[in-house]
Design a binder for these strands. Sequence first.
DNA 1: CTGAAAGCGCTAACAC
DNA 2: GTGTTAGCGCTTTCAG
Lengths: 334, 334
Amino acid sequence: MREVAALSGTSLKTVSRVFNSVPTVDPVLTEKVLKAAKKLNYTPNMTAGSLRRTNGKTNTIGILLEDISNPFSASLYRIYEDYAAENGYIILAGSLDEEPEREHELVNLFISRRVDGLLIAPSGNDHAYLKGEVAKGMHFGFIDRPPVNFKADAVLSTNREGSSEAVNHLISFGHQRILFLGDDPAIYTAEERYQGYAKALKSAKFGLDKKLVLRGLENEESAIAEVRKVLRSADAPTAIFATQNLLTWVAMKALRAEKLEEKVALVGFDDIPGAELLRPAVTLVKQDLAEMGRRSIEMLFSRINGDISEVQTVTVPTTLTAMGSGEISAPKRR
Amino acid sequence: MREVAALSGTSLKTVSRVFNSVPTVDPVLTEKVLKAAKKLNYTPNMTAGSLRRTNGKTNTIGILLEDISNPFSASLYRIYEDYAAENGYIILAGSLDEEPEREHELVNLFISRRVDGLLIAPSGNDHAYLKGEVAKGMHFGFIDRPPVNFKADAVLSTNREGSSEAVNHLISFGHQRILFLGDDPAIYTAEERYQGYAKALKSAKFGLDKKLVLRGLENEESAIAEVRKVLRSADAPTAIFATQNLLTWVAMKALRAEKLEEKVALVGFDDIPGAELLRPAVTLVKQDLAEMGRRSIEMLFSRINGDISEVQTVTVPTTLTAMGSGEISAPKRR
DNA sequence: CTGAAAGCGCTAACAC
DNA sequence: GTGTTAGCGCTTTCAG
């Protein structure tokens, strides 16, 4: 920048003004500066600038998601990226893989880069450690799962209601023995969805058979094996409720392997790409990612821009889309 | 940081040393500093640090991909993220959506944040504008598509060979009229795959019927409509070669709509999630994303660390995986 | 409308 | 081992 000033015969400050498009600069000087900059191949250093800049903003936000290669996270990422770009912001992102330490690490890493705010789909189960950061002016928003021991804006889905709806849908087709396929109960959404399942069964006055509750399975392979085992057992389920996109695939694969996909009903939580192409097409409870993404980043930006109103939790409704697999009737009881 | 020094009764430099884990610091002082830092809620400012740090590294790389919500890009992203994290790096990412101006914009934006290197799956068709940046020490790597008018490391797939293999596979099942479904020819990979298609037909001494070449279709809906039209036409194709994941879905949907999925063969380029669950399961030519990702980021890091050897282009082989849809035989000719 | 001086938070170099 | 001084590239005063 000093070189540009020298070459263009102006001062440092004029160069700075040109690159910040301050209107009160002589067009002739502007021209000279731009020419010199081009010759020297000068590009302003934004990070250095934000060091001294009044508001200290870095025009960067951090996004912590579960796994950016999973379509759920990837879609959210893209929504954030577009919104950020429109507002002159850039995104620092990371995947947490359900590891609480990773959340901690990345939060610190991103804060050390002085992001203006952080949007978190948390893997941790205690966010008290963020309190100090808030005191120093950092802004947080939570997505998909709420903060624990910490107050911050959050955008959640109707996990319970959506799950109850899924199970009621199956019940309406005569199912009573419905296999629950879920993640580790320590995960907020996993537990909520389980509660929704349990509630629907209870409302229908059906018992909750522990053998029909499969939670926190290790990996895809063993999950498929477990589901197949249950499908082959005496008093096997006549329907499956898979509470997450990967688990819906697990369910499909198990049903295929047992040649039961036309016999046993299936409802999945979350969208899966190509669901309409499967046979039967998979009935899904979809989260409204566009809305969840938009609301959460809007809230974060409004905080960054000084909004200090009461912390808010927004709940975005899910939608059950009947596609075929959920409308398979239960076999007549003998 | 000054406040920490004051509170702990030490100097600025000692605090700096503590946070950079310089070994030659009195443990007693270290303790004091850490305590003071905790009380003041101090977190070091990495960006300020890299301003003065000898090598000037920011420990950040920029990644420009086509569309991070597409599984192809998302998988690459994740590979980069993990590799970067292992090396103490952080990632700045952006989606280009096939817009050359967006590539230009994001390159400038990331350079203004002083990334140490940039990995690009380019949407632009002229990269001469990067020459000045190289002169100033920026490092570039290209992935999926090569640079144009610019020398840089690149990692590409065997697009032509993979496509020829796909088409030859179809030919081996008796197909002669094979529909080519491709992207805009201006896109490198789209054109390469077309060349592979054309070459295979030529080797087999089959004519290239322009009516069987569908390229650069606007959107999914119109693409499906076009494919359906061709499928219904006189002298319809007996097989489809879809040259990209989204187009494979288009082909499947069109075949479904025409109830031809068991009659017309299909081979797709790129992986699609749940391919094995479709009926028939989809035969695919898969790119080795893990290898492509690893090689490309390794090369970039070695450049960042001072490797100035000759620029390299690495070609990673694709693999045809027969799953069912590609093994449907052509109907007997009358 | 333009420039000089001070300083953002940090680290390099060199004393002590 | 530790502290002091200068300065990274920029923007903010504030004076011309």
